[in-house]
Design a protein around this nucleic acid. Structure first.
Lengths: 157, 157
DNA sequence: TATACAATATATTGCGCAATATATTGTATA
DNA sequence: TATACAATATATTGCGCAATATATTGTATA
C-alpha cells in the first residue's frame, strides 16, 4: 500500500528499507494464505529454531534468534492459540518453561517445507533482475555496524 | 541491537530489510542528537514536505508523502509539542486544518540542511563499499510491486 | 432547495517491537 | 548455611503503524 518513498530527504534509505520489509511481509502473508499455511510470517524463524531444537525455553530461542527474550515471549501466546506449540514446565529448572511444536505445528512446518525450494528459486531469479539484494543488504548492515553514520559524518572534512 | 538475521529461513530478506531500516533510524537519531537536531527522524520527510508547501493540510501532506492521512495526523501532535509546527483553521474550508513550520521549525530544518551534503557524501561512499544499496532496494521494491511473490511462486513449475 | 456523495478530520483498536521494572528460582561464594 | 548474584519469566508502558468506524463540512446533482 505505501508508495515508494521520494528521495529528496535524508531518511530516504531507511524508508526504502522499511518499505521493502513491509512489502515482503505482506506478500509472504498472501503466499501463506494461498498455501494454507497459518504460521504468522514473523514467527517463521522462531518455529524453525524450535523445530531444530526440539524443545527450548524462551530465553534459549531468543539467543538463537538474536531477538530479545521479551519479544519471543510476546509471540508465544498467538502460537499457543493457533495450536502450533505447547508449553511445559521444565522438571529440572522451575524457572524455565519449555516450548515444543505440536503435531499441527510440525505439519505446518512440513507444509512450509514444500514451498521452500520454490521460494528460494523465486528469490534467486529476482536477484538476477535487481542485483543481489540479499548480499547488498547484508554488506550495508555490516558496514554500518562496523562504523556508524555518526562517525562517518564526523570524518567528513 | 538486533543481530543480523540468520538465513536458513524463508523470511530472511524481509528481516534483513527491517534490520537495516531500524539500524539506519537508530544511527540517524544518534547523528541528530550530536547535531542538536530535535526533529523526530520519522518526521523528516513530513517537515521537508511542509517546508516546500509552506502551508498544508494533513490530507495534502499524506498525498505528497504517499502515507496515510491517519499516520500524518498521528505525527503532528508531537511536532506541535516540540514547537516545530503550528496548526490553523482554514478560513475558506472549515473541514481543513492547515499546518505551518514555526520559526523554530524552520531553524531546525536549516540546521538539518547544514548536514545534508555531508550525509549524502557518506551514503555515496558507503554505496561504493557495499554496492548501490539505494538502487538495489528500489529495483527490488519495484519488481515486487510489478509481480508479487505469490505470482512468482505460482509460476514455478 | 434538498439530497447524496466526496473530502477531511478524529477516535478506537490492534500488531509488533523496545524499554523498563519486578518477581521467582537457581548458582556461586563467603 | 546464608547471602549475593545470575538467569528466567512476567507485566507495564510507549512508539509507529494499519485498519476501521464515525462525525463534520463542502460539492454536485436531482
Amino acid at each position: 500500500m505505501p508508495a515508494s518513498p521520494d528521495l529528496d530527504d535524508i531518511s530516504f534509505l531507511g524508508r526504502l528499507a522499511e518499505a521493502l520489509s513491509t512489502r515482503i511481509e505482506e506478500q509472504t502473508r498472501d503466499l501463506f494464505a494461498d498455501a494454507g499455511i497459518v504460521i504468522p510470517v514473523r514467527s517463521c524463524s522462531l518455529l524453525t529454531a524450535l523445530r531444530h531444537a526440539g524443545e527450548a525455553s524462551a530465553a534459549e530461542l531468543a539467543r538463537t534468534l538474536g531477538q530479545s527474550h521479551q519479544l519471543v515471549v510476546q509471540k508465544c501466546p498467538a502460537l499457543l492459540r493457533l495450536g502450533l506449540i505447547t508449553q511445559h514446565a521444565d522438571p529440572v529448572d522451575a524457572r524455565r518453561k519449555l516450548f515444543r511444536l505440536t503435531d499441527e505445528g510440525a505439519a505446518q512446518m512440513a507444509l512450509l517445507d514444500t514451498y521452500t525450494a520454490g521460494i528460494s528459486a523465486v528469490y534467486e531469479r529476482l536477484f538476477e533482475e535487481t542485483g543481489d539484494t540479499h548480499a547488498v543488504l547484508l554488506k550495508t548492515l555490516k558496514a554500518l555496524d562496523a562504523r556508524p553514520l555518526r562517525e562517518r559524518v564526523a570524518a567528513i572534512p
